[in-house]
Simulated scan of single mutants.
Amino acid sequence: MWGIIPAAGLGSRIQPLAFSKELLPVGSRLDGGVERPRAVSEHLIERMLAAGVDRLCIVISPGKSDIVNYYGACIGDARIAYAVQAEPAGLCDAIFCAAPFIAPEEEVVIGLPDTIWFPRDGLARLPPGRLSFLLFPVARPELFDAVVTDDTGRIEEIEVKRQGARSRWVWGAFRMPGRVLHELHALWRQPGRGDEYIGTLVNAWIAGGGEAFGLRDGTRYVDVGTLHGWREAAALLGDGPEEGEASVLPFRALQGAARA
Rank of each mutant, 00 (worst) to 15 (best):
E196M: 10
Y82F: 14
L91M: 14
L227V: 15
A257C: 08
L30G: 00
L143A: 12
F133V: 03
W2Y: 13
I102W: 06
A204W: 05
L249F: 08
L30D: 02
W2C: 02
G210V: 01
I75N: 02
L236A: 15
G208E: 12
L30Y: 11
L112C: 14
H228G: 07
L112Y: 13
P16Q: 09
Y221I: 01
A165D: 02
F174D: 00
V109E: 07
L91E: 07
P128W: 09
D114A: 06
G244P: 03
E42S: 12
D121P: 05
L24T: 03
V34D: 06
G172L: 11
I155G: 00
L126C: 10
Q163H: 10
P141D: 08
R47V: 03
C92W: 04
I75W: 03
L44H: 01
G76H: 07
G229D: 11
W117R: 05
L126G: 01
D217T: 11
G240E: 09
I58E: 04
I110P: 00
A146D: 07
R168T: 08
Q85I: 07
L91D: 03
G32Y: 02
G33R: 05
T149G: 01
I110Q: 01
I158M: 02
T152Q: 09
S12V: 13
Y197G: 02
R179I: 01
G225C: 08
L227K: 13
I58W: 06
I102Y: 10
L49K: 03
R140K: 13
D93E: 14
R125E: 12
A207W: 04
P88K: 04
F118Q: 10
P241C: 08
F133Y: 15
V34G: 05
R140D: 13
A7W: 07
